[in-house]
Design a protein around this nucleic acid. Structure first.
Lengths: 382, 382
DNA sequence: CAAAAGAGTGAATCCACGA
DNA sequence: GTCGTGGATTCACTCTTTT
């Protein structure tokens, strides 16, 4: 693809145009996440997934009842003087992430009670629009060894669109289908990342202290991206986002400053074999199907003008007119209009889906006129 | 009780001594929660439970797919100009709540993604020390009718001590015992408040739009208070906190400005019959509870030989023998053995906890025989 | 009377597109 | 921007009515 010489927006014209986003696809940008994100052009990524430092305040070492030491999070990058420093760091990277997002883009941030409230408030203050908070219920959490609190058995994710107006991606039907035809809820259960999935060094020690399970990222990407979308992870770490994105036919961009993490992530992602394209087809949404006006049903002669349509209980009867409008005479009152308007009127309802409300007579009984629309769609497709 | 003329602390001595806390026990203070809390003396309550406005910012009407209208929260008390206004309100009431708390006191706040991040950040900024965030998983949440987001199936609670140094109350053993000897996790499942528990006016309409289930408050009070403790609820509403506190032998203080809510709460709490004192003893020591063989239940004459025990659905019936064994005749097959062995056999299961599987008949219905074991343990302890 | 069917409802930031 | 219209969209549970 040729470089785009002409700035796309006025604001972009003010500065030197940053490198094209294509340059960064499926790569890890080395360096501090804010500096790294500054290299990316405005409005160029579809989704951000961020697993920022948790700002844990563990007082001293934590030991198990058998006196073995728990390998907690004590790396330098996870120390912050105080909430103020953490807040300004949080707002800085969130602002960069928002700049880089397309207008209809969205962000996911994961955290625990140590940091998620500060992150969530910053998300709202910066103009993101929260869509859901999602609970990752850990099926195998670490117990509270001292019995001083509840077992910390979950983490919190925030899902937010770039703005209130964003037409964010949500594959509602795909999630529902994958959930035994029940709406996906805001609480998700997954095991923590252990076993073969957990990346370890040659010494057997875990490479990254907070590696997330790929299953979590799969669901996030299936829920809120389309194949070919660009997913940015400002805290790339061990590269779970990259691995899941590559597997699912999405592009990733990672930011990471730790060279050991980068090396481990590259190695990991190289081993991932992407799903074949046909496997990526998710359950289509009825909203995505081509619009078929009711008039077309008549033009196609699937129903003739003058034919009668009924409500399911056959209490109401309407006559079809040549232009695709319906006509009902109920006592003195005559109603005419679209299948939807007349359906709503005879029910005294605000709205009505005429395709499912009205039925035509067949040998086997009443059938919704939606069957006829289906027929036309299939003819169009085949 | 005579008035206490001598100030208890130096700081209290500086100002006019506010009315003694005893005056307020088990009452509802009328008025705005901040003004009402100002009447209470410093460091006088053990626990605060707060269910503040969520600042929902709902749009227009929402209808179900069957065109019925959802009765959303449109009350004035949930309306705020912007985040800034909500934040300053939040910090004001949290500061008062903190002043009123004893040094070892704690607070619970419940909210949704609309407000909980702002509340949580304020909690931290004011010097509270977060102990856990707890997820209330709703077993029967309202679905997302438009298929635009995930089903909002949970709410978030923050549990925080007054300060990092607070020696807060946590009845670890009681929770674990009540949770089949597993540590209580940070995600709790309860149904929403419906049916007979839901308070309704004479017109059948719900008295309060956001009444919380008593089961949620029971667990909170069992987890983090002792009998006789003082529990303050600055947003008393329909009085769930008061009802649970009275039932569990705790004192409540409510703040509420809506007279209709106050009247409903008073009526509700008046009907509550407190548990007898001996039932309030929670699992005291870190030692495992003493073993009670089933035979002892018979020896104690809590159940007589020849009595019948049933599975919860009453599909299975067993006869109690004098030695504490059970006997079941199922067609030609006769089974006998311990409550556990017979329970497993009739279910075709590897193992079974007979204490919870078998039930005896009481006036009010079937009850697990575990109730009887509890009784014996309490007799042994007391 | 029991069982089945129907109606009602809950802290909800709940539509997309073209004229 | 607004406005109008097409047409997509629900789970668990309680209580009432009908069979």
């Amino acid at each position: 693809m040729p470089a785009n010489k002409k700035p796309k927006t006025k604001s972009a014209a003010k500065k030197a145009e940053p490198a094209n986003i294509e340059t960064f696809l499926d790569t890890i940008v080395t360096g501090d996440c804010i500096a790294a994100m500054k290299k990316l052009p405005n409005a160029s990524v579809d989704l951000v997934f961020a697993d920022p430092p948790y700002n844990l305040q563990l007082g001293g070492d934590l030991t198990r009842p058998d006196n073995s030491r728990v390998d907690g999070v004590d790396d330098d990058w996870d120390k912050f003087e105080n909430f103020k420093a953490y807040d300004s760091f949080t707002r800085a990277w969130l602002a960069e992430a928002r700049r880089v997002l397309k207008p209809d883009g969205a962000i996911w941030v994961i955290g625990s009670y140590h940091n998620i409230f500060r992150v969530g408030a910053a998300v709202q203050d910066l103009g993101f629009w929260i869509l859901n908070d999602v609970i990752w219920r850990k099926s195998n959490p670490m117990p509270n060894f001292r019995g001083t609190r509840l077992t910390n058995a979950h983490e919190t994710l925030i899902w937010a669109a770039k703005s209130e107006k964003s037409k964010y991606t949500f594959n509602y039907r795909a999630l529902k289908t994958g959930n035994d035809d029940l709406q996906m809820r805001s609480d998700w259960e997954f095991p923590i990342c252990t076993g073969a999935e957990r990346i370890k060094g040659e010494d057997g020690a875990k490479t990254h202290p907070t590696q997330k399970p790929e299953s979590l990222l799969y669901r996030i990407l299936i829920a809120s991206t389309k194949p070919g979308d660009v997913v940015l992870d400002p805290f790339f770490g061990s590269g779970t986002t990259g691995a899941a994105a590559k597997f699912l036919g999405r592009h990733y961009i990672g930011c990471e400053r730790d060279k050991a993490y980068i090396a481990a992530a590259k190695k990991r992602i190289a081993r991932v074999k992407p799903l074949p394209e046909e496997e990526l087809q998710t359950q289509p949404s009825p909203r995505a199907a081509p619009r078929v006006p009711f008039g077309q049903v008549i033009e196609t002669k699937l129903i003739k003008p003058g034919a009668k349509l009924y409500s399911r209980n056959k209490n109401t009867c309407a006559k079809v007119r040549a232009d695709g409008s319906l006509y009902v005479k109920d006592g003195d009152v005559e109603i005419q209009g679209s299948i939807h308007k007349v359906g709503a009127a005879v029910q005294n309802a605000q709205a009505c889906n005429g395709w499912t409300y009205w039925h035509y007579e067949e040998k086997t009984g009443l059938k919704p006129i939606d069957f006829l629309r289906d027929k036309i769609r299939k003819q169009m497709a085949g």
